[in-house]
Amino acid sequence: MSDLIAIAFSAFILQNIILTQFLGICPFIGVSTKRSSALGMGFAVIFVMLISSSITWLLYHYVLVEFDITYLRTIVFILVIAALVQMVETFLKKASPSLYKALGIYLPLITTNCAIIGVALLNISNEYNFVQMVVYTMFIGLGFLFVIYIFSMMREKLDHAPVPKAFKGAPIALIVAAILAIIFTRFGGLIEWIS
């Protein structure tokens, strides 16, 4: 149990996917201009990430390893994720139009989001078992949501500010990200007493 808590906390804060692993920077810069879109993107990422990580994990351990063709993992994972996003999109459209309305427009962006395949690959290289994998993926996704949401709040404020012209857009966003990264590194000891 305590190892799961440790995995969850470090996935959420210490190994935060955006601020320390540099995955999913494109949506971080691109979609975080408004609070609502940040929320939508965050939930869509959690949703797709959980499904794709579970499927790729099962595929890897029960097919690729069995047949000794682990070197095909990149190509298999990317195809699976692309097909999966497609399927989720059609399924959502039919099954739950309201959910589709909320997440739908972010789904196509997700295929080329390196966070999804990145986490799928990290789950393999970290040698997690299935439960650990689910917890890790869940909290990586929550960390993504958390950071992109607080980031969007700041972006909304920055939009009205007379930021120097050269710094408008991505540069100031990156500087804010740097400050966030520094703040996040200071959370280290908060969970130490558990282990």
Partner: peptide, 11 residues
């Protein structure tokens, strides 16, 4: 560190 990466690219 990560913070340095963001700050360098930003500048």
């Amino acid at each position: 560190q990560p913070a340095g990466a963001f700050i360098s690219l930003g500048f």
